[in-house]
Amino acid sequence: MLTRPELGSLVGAIAVFCCFALAADGFLRASSLGTVLYASSTIGIMAVPVALLMIGGEFDLSAGVLVTSSALVSSMFSYQMTANVWVGVGVSLLVTLAVGAFNGIMLARTKLPSFIVTLGTFLMLTGLNLGLTKLVSGTVSTKTIADMEGFTTARALFASTLTVGGTHIKVTVLWWLALVALGSWILLRTRAGNWIFAVGGNENAARAVGVPVTRTKTALYTGVAFGAWICGQHLLFSYDVVQSGEGVGNELIYIIAAVIGGCLITGGHGSAVGSAVGALLFGMTSKGIVFAEWNPDWFKFFLGAMLLLATLLNTWVRRRAEASK
């Protein structure tokens, strides 16, 4: 029971919830719930594939800016080609997945640490986002595409708000829940899930029994790219214009959510549900501080403390698991 990866973060989440329920007047209101869930979902959608990748033993530092790249490609392609926005959305999916596959293939070919490979992609994408946007639009943000065909339907899919029992829930929460369910299904019940645990836990052993290591890791990077595509489209269709410099630093927040949720930073252990709890902790803390009218400067302090606590707990769990090794 103690080896459940999300247990520690769940205890933490309950503690944080109780803390803000007492300290912040508005925290328990239904409208606040919607706000907290929304903040959690934008992190959580990415935390699921990032957690799977971490269980598979790798990092993706390009995940944050890839979200922006995905939104930019979608917007600019639609605008420049004056096509239906759905064409842009589709092209964006292909481009984003290609970047993910690039990360995976580079990792396999160069055998460099993923930290270096994706740091390279991160910097290149940051430059491309700014450079290409300025080249195409003349400014650092994209042109509005709100009057284009297909915008309303795309917005409904990626950025609409549903009302459930008086609470406004953003559609991203549904995407998030679906991804958590899908991630859990893959990890716990499919062959691919077995391979993910194995390549992260002991890559050589996995290779020796015939697990396709390169294919598994490339698929994980494409998974992160898929998450980035959803987040990117949400960004585009909720704000209509995209700032090309956004997204930098978010990659660490996704990683933090996964680690707080019980993923071992060295791979081989973790869960999709844990990443969701990590994202929820993030959402509760960031919004709870606002509701409690505390100085938001404290947010990062809490985040750091939670990260340390979670990592200590995880390390302790792993020592127990490998005690007789």
Partner: peptide, 21 residues
């Protein structure tokens, strides 16, 4: 293999079928 036979953190049953699930 002497040292790379298993994935230590994975349950016994997952290890048993690894690669031939």
């Amino acid at each position: 293999h002497q040292d790379l036979a298993v994935v230590p953190l994975m349950p016994v049953w997952r290890n048993f079928f690894l690669g031939s699930e």
